[in-house]
Design a protein around this nucleic acid. Sequence first.
DNA 1: GTTGTTTTCGCGCTAGCA
DNA 2: TGCTAGCGCGAAAACAAC
Lengths: 295, 295
Amino acid sequence: MGGRPARKKKKGDACQTENKTPNTHGSQLDEYFEPEHKTEPIKLAKIGQQTTDPVFTTKKDPVDSLKGMRFFSSRICREIQSKEVTTYNEISDGITKEIQHIFPTVSEKNIRRRVYDALNVLIAAKIISKTKKEIRWIGLPNYSTANEDIYEKERRTIENRIQEKKKQIKDLVRRLVCFHNLTKKNRAHPDTTPGTLGHAVSDNTDTSQRITAPFVLIKTQKNTRIHCEMLENRTQYYFEFDRPFEIIEDVSVMEKIGHGTVDSSEELMEIIPKGAWKYITRDIKPKRKNTSQKG
Amino acid sequence: MGGRPARKKKKGDACQTENKTPNTHGSQLDEYFEPEHKTEPIKLAKIGQQTTDPVFTTKKDPVDSLKGMRFFSSRICREIQSKEVTTYNEISDGITKEIQHIFPTVSEKNIRRRVYDALNVLIAAKIISKTKKEIRWIGLPNYSTANEDIYEKERRTIENRIQEKKKQIKDLVRRLVCFHNLTKKNRAHPDTTPGTLGHAVSDNTDTSQRITAPFVLIKTQKNTRIHCEMLENRTQYYFEFDRPFEIIEDVSVMEKIGHGTVDSSEELMEIIPKGAWKYITRDIKPKRKNTSQKG
DNA sequence: GTTGTTTTCGCGCTAGCA
DNA sequence: TGCTAGCGCGAAAACAAC
């Protein structure tokens, strides 16, 4: 389908204009096509819009001409949409004026007859409605659209929650790996003073590599004055600073010193509870040791 | 508009059936109308679907007959929708069979001619598409809908960012208020040992109410062992715990002890940089003192 | 190209109705 | 006698065959 270049009239109508100055019309009419058709000057035929499978040996699909159902109908749709409520006469007059202005050969009678056809089809398709004279645009018979909107919205919400959970899992895995590595390392370096925490770490000569977790690292400026006190039952420690400070959590520190990676996926699976395996997707796994990833 | 009872053929066609057994047809055809028309038995004319303003003195709007654009078009729409992809011949054959089954008077030629008309209108209205023979249902002419979707999505994204910023501002204001109140309080309680930080706070008999900020409160279990060390240049403090602990930031503590509120909006405005006033909306302002808010 | 078919459809006569 | 629209002729595209 898809119309064809304006057909020559069979009977002696009024076609002189077209034959005499085809170019003039061609350029003038150009602007009367929908945007998607505005690629080339119009001569006789022109490639139509190919939605898909453009590979066909057949010549081509000429675009709508200036007359006929196709053309009138698109005008009519536009007219009704822009007006929100209109009448047969308004539409017909509008189109007639518009068309005859640039193509005086078409008869008003014909246009008016076509408007009836188009309106009836559009009414049947339920994209316009007519009540006793008033024609109004309904638009999308939205069987799907409206619903898809809702579902799409919900989908997005759910996806967000999934992302949230993934982040949480990732963080948990991160912590797990760090503490696992820390434990491993501590085991390799037996405590010189087992049973006590305060082994001589503050002594720079101490060679122990053990780190007790959890811990916190507080960073501040040189010369910052710090005051510390604690409750007698040791449940609260209060530190005052007179300059800004930064708290760095243990996991971050451990990652910095290379405790944030695993040797292999197998090792990772070993330290993750079996019940949680199915949640450990690729994007959640921490980096592997000796694995340089660059994009 | 809206069709009329099936017109009698002008030329001696084949109209006997209709005149002989009108009732039989009436009942049979009944089921061929769209749901919204299925309210009464069809005789000659019937109230059309009144979308709005049903108050009209004019008689009535006869409903679609079994022939004509209206009827064919709705059939066609249904056909295309149900098939998702079809052809002119498929449609025509389908309709022809369907119609002739119950109304043998209509000529196939006529039906096939009408299908062209309807298809062209629907194509122009962009609710179906035709590519080289393949006709498929598009549905939504959504000139607006699709775009609104995009805009709506963007709007949501932007709104999220605004919320994010608001949260940040709210937090900043919160901090500002706390530190402002703290300063005010400290001024009211002159330091007994000016110039030093470590005034005798650890001494329970000390009456000084001054608090130096920033600070941090660390909460842990009784009997938790803590080890502390620091770099010589005092830029880093390292605390080891053997049990979980909780860090409570200074602002939270200050809020807990009543430093998170302001006396009045005026006071708030005083402590907020003038350039930022316009961002301090109602939902960002902290609670006022002595203001019990219950909803 | 040309010619023969088939597909599409421009166009308008004219029938019912108010 | 004007509005609405059923209906189909026959010509113009498109396609197939030569």
